[in-house]
Computed example of a mutant assay.
Amino acid sequence: MLSTLLASAVVTAGGVLPVPLPPLPTDPVPPPTAEVQQVEVSGTLSAADGRLRRGCKDYRYAYAVVSESEDWTFDITLQDRFDRGVNSQSLLGPYDDEAGVLTYRLCRRATSPGRFTLTGRLTAYEGTSKETSVTVTESFRLRRRNR
C-alpha cells in the first residue's frame, strides 16, 4: 500500500511541476512600420529692393507653391531689420492661387529703412497622417528716399 501511495504522490507531483518553457526574447521586436511617403512640396518668395515712399504705401512681393496635394497652407511673415513683425498673411490651397502677387502696407514715418525678411512656412497635407513642411526665406532692402 505504501508503494501505491508513493506512486500516487509521484504522479501528482509530476502533474504539478512546471514544464520548462522556451526562453523569452530579451530584445523587443519593433512593430512593423508602414512606409509613409512624403508629399512633394516647395515654395518661393520674391521681393525686389526698393525705396520707402512718403506716407503710407502698398508694396508687393510674389509667391509660388508647388505641391502634389491640393491641401496646403502657406503662412508668410514679414520682419524688419529689428526682427519686428510688420505683416503676415496665410494662403490656403485649393482656395488661393498657387502663384501670385501679394501686397502689404508700410508707413514711412513708422518704418525704419533697411533689410526686410520674408519667411514662409509651407505645409502640404495628404490625408490625416501625411504632412510635409518646408521653410522659405527671402531678404530685400527698402532704403530711405533721397531728398
Rank of each mutant, 00 (worst) to 15 (best):
E35K: 08
P94E: 05
Y63H: 08
C107T: 08
V36A: 13
T128C: 10
S46F: 13
S129C: 11
S112L: 07
V66W: 01
Q89N: 14
L118M: 06
L102P: 00
A62V: 04
A110G: 03
G85D: 12
S129I: 09
G55W: 10
R53L: 15
A48S: 14
G127H: 10
K130S: 15
D27I: 14
G50A: 06
L78F: 03
L102I: 06
D80M: 00
R121I: 12
R109N: 08
R105T: 12
T103M: 07
E126Q: 11
L21R: 11
P113V: 00
R108G: 07
P18A: 08
P22S: 15
T44D: 14
G85H: 08
G55D: 15
F82W: 04
T123G: 09
K130A: 14
E126N: 09
S46G: 13
L118H: 02
Q37E: 10
L91Y: 04
V19R: 07
A124I: 00
P22C: 11
T119Q: 08
F82L: 07
G127C: 10
P31F: 08
E35S: 12
E35A: 11
P113R: 00
V36F: 13
S42G: 13
V36T: 11
G120N: 08
V41Q: 01
E126M: 07
E126V: 04
D96L: 01
P32Y: 08
A62I: 01
